[in-house]
Amino acid sequence: MAKRDTYTPDTLLAVAVEVFNQRGYDGTSMEHLSQAAGISKSSIYHHVKGKEELLRRAISRALDGLFAVLEEPAATQGPAIERLEHVTRRVVEVLIAELPYVTLLLRVRGNTATERWAMERRREFDHRVAELLRSAVAEGDLRADVDVRLATRLLFGMVNSIAEWYRPERRTSLSSAEVADGVVHTAFSGLRR
């Protein structure tokens, strides 16, 4: 009796993201994915057209989580500073909840159509956050002497760095709420007027 393929698209995607993060997308072949999943390449092709489809699905999962934050009521109503703090806190929580997927998103370099699409979506996200920063400055809650583009880059540089050091499997790891509190406190104590 032949071994039955027990992989679902979601479990295959999780394996692909792990391999992409270890080897890099460009350094990963279908053979690498097949070995990591313990299934044949033809079984992978049963679920997806190819490696780039797996990349797009993974990156979409990360981007969808980030963009969903911008649609939450606390991100769309109230003073801009409160919306900005909410977005920052929730982005940290999404990053931690979807750590392998967001890590992959942060590592794309524009070498494929999917990577260029992802980079464009990231820029769109950054622009929307920069608009919140501009609104908070206009409302008098954030310092006007810090360039908004610079503040956006610094804020998300700090947030994105979490993907490099946060390891939830460590017993000493902070919770996502503790990390989010630390980021919000550190960033906004320097940005608030």
Results as ranks from 00 to 15, higher is better:
Pro73Arg: 03
Asp64Cys: 09
Phe156Ile: 07
Ala2Trp: 15
Arg56Thr: 15
Pro9Gly: 09
Arg170Ser: 12
Gly157Arg: 00
Leu133Tyr: 14
Leu84Asn: 08
Tyr101Leu: 05
Val148Glu: 06
Leu104Gln: 06
Arg83Asp: 08
Leu63Ser: 00
Leu174Tyr: 13
Lys41Ser: 04
Arg193Val: 14
Thr152Lys: 09
Thr186Glu: 13
Val69Ile: 05
Glu85Lys: 15
Val94Ile: 07
Asn160Cys: 09
Glu31Ser: 14
Arg107Ala: 10
Asp10Arg: 12
Ala180Gly: 04
Lys49Ser: 15
Gln22Met: 10
Asp26Met: 13
Gly140Met: 02
Glu71Asp: 14
Thr112Gly: 00
Arg167Val: 15
Glu124Val: 08
Asn160Gly: 12
Leu133Gln: 13
Thr152Val: 11
Gly27His: 00
Ala58Trp: 11
Leu99Cys: 04
Gly190Ile: 11
Val179Ser: 01
Tyr45Trp: 06
Arg116Val: 10
Leu104Gly: 02
Arg121Leu: 09
Arg89Gln: 09
Lys49Thr: 15
Gly182Asn: 08
Leu133Gly: 13
Arg109Asp: 08
Phe125Asn: 00
Trp117Thr: 08
Tyr45Ser: 01
Leu70Ala: 04
Val91Cys: 13
Val184Arg: 04
Ala136Ser: 00
His32Gln: 11
Phe188Thr: 03
Ser29Trp: 03
Leu55Asp: 02
Ile81Arg: 12
Arg61Leu: 09
Asp10Leu: 11
Ser60Trp: 13
Gly65Ala: 02
Thr11Phe: 11
Arg153Asp: 14
Glu115Gly: 07
Thr11Arg: 14
Ala118Gly: 01
Leu66Ile: 09
Arg149His: 15
Glu71His: 11
Arg143Val: 05
Ala2Tyr: 15
Leu133Thr: 13
Ala177Thr: 09
Leu12Met: 13
Gly50Met: 08
Arg121Lys: 12
Phe67Ser: 11
Val69Pro: 04
Asp26Ala: 15
Tyr166Gln: 02
Gly110Ala: 00
Trp117Ala: 05
Ser29Ile: 01
Thr112Cys: 02
Val146Arg: 07
Ala36Tyr: 08
Ser173Lys: 04
Arg57Thr: 04
Ser176Gly: 12
Glu93Val: 03
Val69Thr: 04
Arg56Ala: 15
Arg107Glu: 13
Leu105Asn: 05
Gly38Val: 02
Leu133Phe: 15
Arg83Val: 01
Thr11His: 12
Val17Lys: 01
Pro100Ile: 02
Leu33Ala: 01
Gly182Ala: 11
Leu154Val: 12
Ala187Met: 11
Thr8Ser: 07
Ala130Cys: 07
Pro73Val: 05
Ala136Lys: 04
Leu132Trp: 04
Leu106Cys: 13
Val183Asp: 06
